[in-house]
Design a protein around this nucleic acid. Structure first.
Lengths: 358, 358
DNA sequence: GCCAGAGAAGAAAGCGCTTGCTATCGCTTG
DNA sequence: CAAGCGATAGCAAGCGCTTTCTTCTCTGGC
C-alpha cells in the first residue's frame, strides 16, 4: 500500500494534521518539527494523494484544454503554450496538469469533455478553436460553462468569439484572434497586386472562424468596389475541412469553375499546401500562374516552396496569455475580451498576375 | 454547492448506496428503482465527483502522456492517437482523460511530471520520445516507474527503448520504433544512388534515438566497405537539436567542413527543412547539387519542394497501440516489446549525385 | 507571583463516494 | 408449514486529506 500522511506522521512523531501543515506551509509550524517532518517525508518517499487532497480542500490540479486536434500544429502550439504556463511550479498556484481533450470539432465531444472536466472538478478550462455556430449548441455549452463557473472553475476561450449576450453573466475571459482583419489585409494585398479573380477555399461552413475570415475577405472586395455577395463571388468560394486533401480537391473545383483565376486564398496553411499541390499537378506554377495564400503562419509555411504568404497569428503568445488567465495570474481586460492582432506575412507565393491575364 | 449523491438519493427516495450502484451498474438494482434514480439524476443534473470516487474506489480517470513538446507534430500525432484511444467511452474502462506533459526533453521535468502523475494516482502513463542516456537518470526514472507500477499504474513506453536490465522486473510495455533499420535503409538508398560523401545532421548527442539512427547509418556505411568510424566520418557528422534552425546551422557547418558533399541526412524532417533552406541560400539546388533526406515522414514532408525523401514512422498507429496497451485493452507481446517497422519513402529530394562530383 | 495571550500541536469532523456486510421480503422446497 | 434462498436495499465503515476548534505550553506584563 502507498505511504499515507498517517505513516509520515507516525514516523515523525507528530499528528497527521501537523504533517499536512508542513506540506502546505499555510500554518505556523516550529522549525524543529518542520525539519523532522520533512525528513520523514523523504525517508518514506511520500507523495500526497491528490484525490484525497482535492476532495478535502475542494481544489484540483487539473486544467482542461479543449482543442480540435492536438496533432494539428495550430492547436499543438496553443496547447503547448498553455501547458507551459500552467505547469510552471514556481508561479503562484502553479504545477497544474493540462488535460488535453481532442474534440475533433464535434459539438457533442465538446460537451462530453466539459462534463468529464466538471466531474474532475477542474480548476480551469481553456477552450480553443472556432465554435460551431448554432443556437442549441451555443446554449448547451453556455449552460455547462455556467455550471463550471459557478463551481469555481475558471474559463478562458482562446481563438473563439466571446459567448453571446444572454450568457454574458458567466465570467469568461476571451482571447480572440482578429480573423476578420487578417483576412481583409490579405485580400487587400492580393487586390493591390492586381488580382481580380480570387478563389477562396473556406473552412467548414458552420464555424465562426470560417465566417469571420470570409467576412474580412468580402469586406476587402467591397472596399475595392468588387461584388462581395451574389453568385459571382459564391462561385469563387468553396467550403471544405481544415486538411490538406480538402485543399487539393477545392483547388481543382475552383479551377473547374473558373479556369482563369489568378489567386487562391486558403482557409489555413495546411489547406494552402493542398491547394499548391493541386495547382502544381495541373501544371500551373506558383506564383507565376496563380498566387496562393494561407492563414495562421504555421512553422512549416516558411519552408514550402515557394514560401507561403499568410496571415500570422501569434499562437504561442495567445496560448500563454490564455494560460495566465486561466490560472488567475493575469486579470482579464475590461469586458473580458482581448483581441490578438494578426499580421500579414508576404512571402513568395503571391505575386502580380501575369500581364495577359488581368 | 454542487449536487451530491445524497441529494440524488433523497430525491429518489433511496439510499446513496443504491444511487452509486445504479450509476456504476455493478450490482443488481430493480428496474423501477433504477428508473427513479435515473430520473433524479437528470432532474438534478448530477455529475459525480471524480475525486471522491477515485478516493473511495482507488481508481482514476487520468492517463499521463509525457512528450517532449506537443507543438511538434511528431509528438502531437502520437498524443492525439493515444488520446483518441483512451477517451473512447464505448470501450471497456474508456472515457479516460489524457494529461499531456511537455518535458521539453529535460530529465528533471520528466521526473517532476512522473511525481505529479503519481500524486494523481494516474491509471496509466505513456512516455514517448527517446530517452536521455545516463545511468543516474535511467535509474531515477526506473525507480519512479517501479513505484507507479506497484501502485497499479500501467506504464507504456512509446518510441523509447525498453528499460534496462536491472529494471526489467517492472511490468512495462514498450512500443519501439525501428530507428536503426530505418536509418540503415535510408543510407543504403543514398549509397545505391552513388553518394559517397554524405553529411549527417544528428539530433542531441545524449538521446537514444539519435544514437540508434546514427548506428543504422554507420552500419550501412560499413556494409558498403566505407569507413564507419574515425575522424573521416566524424567530420561529416554534426549534432544539433531537433529544430529547423539547428538544421540550418548544421548544414552550413557541414558545407564548411566538406564543400563537396553530395547528400545530407537530417535527424528528422523538421531539421531537414532547415538543411534545405541553408543549401538553397548557398545557391545549391536540391537534389541536383545535394540530396537531402529526413526522418519521421511528418505530414508536411510531402509538400515541401522538392518533396522530402524520408523514413516513415507510423506514429498514429504507434500511439493508438500505446493507448490500447495503457488501457489494458490489448496485451503486450511476449517480452513486452513491440517494434514498429519504419518504411523508406523515396521522394524527390534525393537523386544520384551530379556526374562530375562522384 | 499570577494571569492573559500568543504560538504550536492535536483531536476529530467532515469532503463525496464505494462496498462489505446485514436486513428484509416474497417465494420455492422438502 | 418451516426452513432456505435469491434478489434488493440500506448501514456504516472507511478512502487520505484539510481545517476548525481545542488544548497545552510557554512568555511577558503588572
Amino acid at each position: 500500500m502507498a505511504v499515507t500522511l498517517a505513516d509520515v506522521a507516525a514516523r515523525a512523531g507528530v499528528s497527521s494534521a501537523t504533517v499536512s501543515r508542513v506540506l502546505n506551509g499555510n500554518y505556523p509550524v516550529a522549525g524543529s518539527t518542520r525539519d523532522r517532518v520533512q525528513r520523514a517525508v523523504e525517508d518514506l518517499d511520500y507523495v500526497v494523494n491528490g484525490q484525497a487532497r482535492g476532495l478535502a480542500a475542494a481544489t484540483s490540479d487539473l486544467v482542461g484544454v479543449l482543442v480540435n486536434d492536438v496533432a494539428d500544429p495550430f492547436f499543438g502550439l496553443i496547447a503547448s503554450a498553455v501547458q507551459a504556463e500552467i505547469s510552471d511550479a514556481s508561479a503562484p498556484g502553479g504545477g497544474k496538469l493540462a488535460v488535453v481533450c481532442n474534440t475533433g470539432g464535434s459539438p457533442e465531444a465538446e460537451l462530453t469533455y466539459l462534463t468529464l472536466l466538471e466531474r474532475q472538478r477542474a480548476a480551469g478550462v481553456v477552450i480553443t478553436g472556432g465554435a460551431v455556430e448554432g443556437a442549441e449548441h451555443s446554449a448547451a455549452v453556455a449552460a455547462r460553462l455556467a455550471r463550471l463557473a459557478e463551481s469555481g472553475t475558471r474559463i478562458v476561450l482562446c481563438g473563439r468569439p466571446p459567448l453571446e449576450q444572454p450568457a454574458t453573466q458567466i465570467p469568461v475571459a476571451t482571447v480572440a484572434f482578429d480573423n476578420r482583419g487578417g483576412a481583409r489585409r490579405l485580400t487587400e494585398h492580393l487586390l493591390s497586386l492586381g488580382h481580380r479573380r480570387i478563389g477562396y477555399v473556406a473552412g467548414p461552413a458552420d464555424r465562426t472562424t470560417t465566417r469571420h475570415r470570409l467576412e474580412g475577405h468580402r469586406a476587402a472586395l467591397a472596399d475595392h468596389g468588387l461584388p462581395a455577395t451574389g453568385p459571382a463571388v459564391d462561385r469563387l468560394t468553396v467550403h471544405g475541412s481544415y486538411d490538406r486533401s480538402s485543399g487539393y480537391d477545392a483547388a481543382l473545383e475552383l479551377l473547374r469553375r473558373e479556369p482563369t483565376l489568378t489567386a487562391v486564398i486558403a482557409a489555413n496553411d495546411t489547406v494552402a499546401l493542398g491547394v499548391c499541390a493541386a495547382l502544381r499537378d495541373q501544371g500551373l506554377s506558383i506564383p507565376d500562374d496563380v498566387s496562393v495564400a494561407g492563414f495562421d503562419d504555421l512553422p512549416f509555411s516558411v519552408d514550402t516552396a515557394p514560401a507561403l504568404t499568410t496571415v500570422r497569428i501569434p499562437l504561442q503568445e495567445a496560448g500563454a496569455r490564455a494560460g495566465r488567465l486561466v490560472m488567475g495570474r493575469q486579470t482579464a481586460p475590461p469586458g473580458g475580451l482581448a483581441t490578438i492582432r494578426t499580421e500579414l506575412m508576404v512571402r513568395a507565393s503571391t505575386a502580380p498576375p501575369r500581364a495577359g491575364s488581368a
